[in-house]
Design a protein around this nucleic acid. Structure first.
Lengths: 337, 337
DNA sequence: GTTAGCACTCTCCCCATGAGAGTGCTAATC
DNA sequence: GATTAGCACTCTCATGGGGAGAGTGCTAAC
């Protein structure tokens, strides 16, 4: 365990480094926080902290920078959370009530506002149920023999695909067919729909039922992501060379991020912080991800996340990620009535 | 007008510069293309070409690089188009027939494959009609008093929003209501739907009709973009400094690109090439955009575009943009049956 | 019209240099 | 025993000079 003074100094080192992005010297600590010890004493403490693995220095005679262990300790024990003022809260919430009451608009807005607030990449994953159920299916006549199958799922998402229908059926017949299917399939999940299929007498009904099962399964697979703030994140000194920037650009896209986020299993009241190699993906080993889940237990679950260099303003970011997750839960609730 | 020899030399300068990204010297031209004149003669011709504005050089004693005028002349008169081999064609088309027959999948795939083929940013804009019509509207019961209004439009897109419905109506009543609305509104555009609204006796029908009009209008506004290849474009020497890279990253996103593309008015058999300041947006003044439209005349129109530095492999890119536009037209046709 | 020859220009890489920032250690001090 | 002053030492980084190299532009000869 760290002595109080060492912990204090570690705290200062991390704060300072987060603010300046430059290795922190003993001099800087003493001067800027009027410690009542000399730089030599601080140097001794820094050496001890380094011994214990909380900080390192890039070369013999540079200041100290936090190690991942240091950040971890900082986040758990030292960090002062920067509360979200009433003004800030109001400004943010105002933007949501200004926007049309549409989930996708809100998610997009959340990503954008959060990215702006933390100056890093913000990712919002559209809420999903672990298992989605069909709410209603519809067949829209396109041309003889083909119709658009539209499925509304119980997480509010819509899936569509073009399907074959009997050549001689027009919209009226398709309506009848759809209502027949809905009577049996509504509120079932993909698995169940598939088991119901053989119960239909009509060949086409059976085939369409299987299409619907596919449709529902598809809806449950890939959740849509809203990504913002790439430019702001890349402007940070961590990406001061073009190759590091290219690396980042390569990974900061929906496909990669989806893999990094993983769908939450239950709504999380807090925010998880994954520092450096605590992330599974190796490209994230220089990144920190702050992630929180939103939604109702048993309902659709989404994620709010912020990605940035491990040198991240944790005290600022973490409460904001939490706040946005709570806010999205509320907004979701509002949509559900 | 240029003499034949000057045109030949300009051609070589552009080819060479496109390949190497380095200013082209008289020596390089003579050596690498075994011209039967001396470097001094070539220098004289280069001086003349510079006089006439087709090339410049960055400083007194560097090789020559094409000016925008030079590129323009090259594209119109000199460039050798690199045909798409049967193999390449097969490989590409195969990928589309492998993919599920879904428009969005295809558009995404097109952006991705095209980006890979040209090594620059590829953008595909989802086809849109100048005026969209409602194909069918549907009301899906969510909870007492609220339903999901789903509109299928005649360009194949789907729009949705949550609307208020009478508290006491369940799915059966909503079905009746929807079919009543469809009878009157189907195949009308937003304008017309709005004028029909007052003809309904029922208050709720009138209100829902206006919602539908909105929905249709919304569907016609912003076309979805599929963007790929950012990383490849940024890896080029034009973006060798982080600030230029940041500038590019800032602009290479859906919102900005939508503004740069502008919806096509009619399907274009060729591909337009906009070099440097021929682009309206000032951020594109160092870029070239190659853009082609696809779709049927009178039907929904989309765009295929490639964006890259003005030093772009024109002879390679242009035929491929054209080819993808044609391919998308065919695929669109296939979806429409 | 073409070419050899050459002076001239500009970039770019390399390297030496020195200032500056910081540490680590030792010995003195509280 | 903890703290501190002092100082040697280390490493980076900015600066500037120098030289090689690449290429042009011009002139005079062919």
């Amino acid at each position: 365990m760290l002595t109080q003074r060492r912990a204090d100094i570690l705290n200062l080192v991390v704060d300072e480094y987060i603010g300046t992005a430059a290795p922190v010297s003993s001099r800087a600590l003493v001067d800027r926080h009027n410690l009542d010890v000399s730089t030599a004493t601080v140097r001794n403490e820094l050496a001890a902290l380094e011994q214990e693995g909380y900080i390192t220095h890039p070369y013999t005679s540079a200041g100290r920078i936090p190690s991942n262990t240091g950040y971890r300790f900082y986040v758990e024990e030292l960090m002062a959370e920067e509360p979200i003022g009433a003004d800030e809260r109001r400004t943010i919430e105002h933007q949501f009530y200004q926007a049309p009451p549409d989930l996708d608009e809100w998610l997009q807005l959340a990503a954008s506002v959060l990215a702006g607030a933390v100056g890093n990449v913000a990712v919002v994953a559209r809420p999903q149920r672990p298992v989605t159920h069909l709410r209603q299916a519809q067949l829209v006549h396109l041309r003889p023999g083909a119709a658009l199958l539209v499925g509304v799922l119980d997480d509010g998402s819509i899936q569509e695909r073009i399907v074959a229908v009997p050549e001689d059926e027009g919209q009226p017949e398709l309506l009848t067919r759809a209502s027949r299917l809905n009577d049996r399939l509504s509120l079932s999940d993909s698995e169940r729909i598939r088991t119901i299929a053989p119960q239909f007498d009509d060949d086409d009904d059976r085939r369409l039922t299987l299409e619907i099962a596919d449709l529902v399964a598809e809806g449950a697979s890939a959740s849509q992501l809203f990504i913002e703030g790439i430019r702001a994140a890349l402007a940070q000194p961590e990406f001061s060379t073009t190759d590091r920037m290219l690396d980042a650009v390569e990974h900061l896209e929906a496909y990669e991020l989806r893999g990094a986020l993983r769908p939450p299993q239950h709504p999380d009241p807090g925010a998880r912080v994954l520092i450096g190699d605590e992330n599974e993906r190796s490209w994230l080993h220089d990144w920190t991800m702050v992630i929180a889940a939103f939604g109702e237990p048993g309902g659709a679950l989404g994620s709010v996340a912020v990605l940035g260099p491990t040198r991240m303003h944790y005290g600022h970011t973490i409460p904001r990620v939490r706040y946005f997750a709570r806010l999205m839960t509320e907004l979701l609730h509002e949509l559900d009535g």
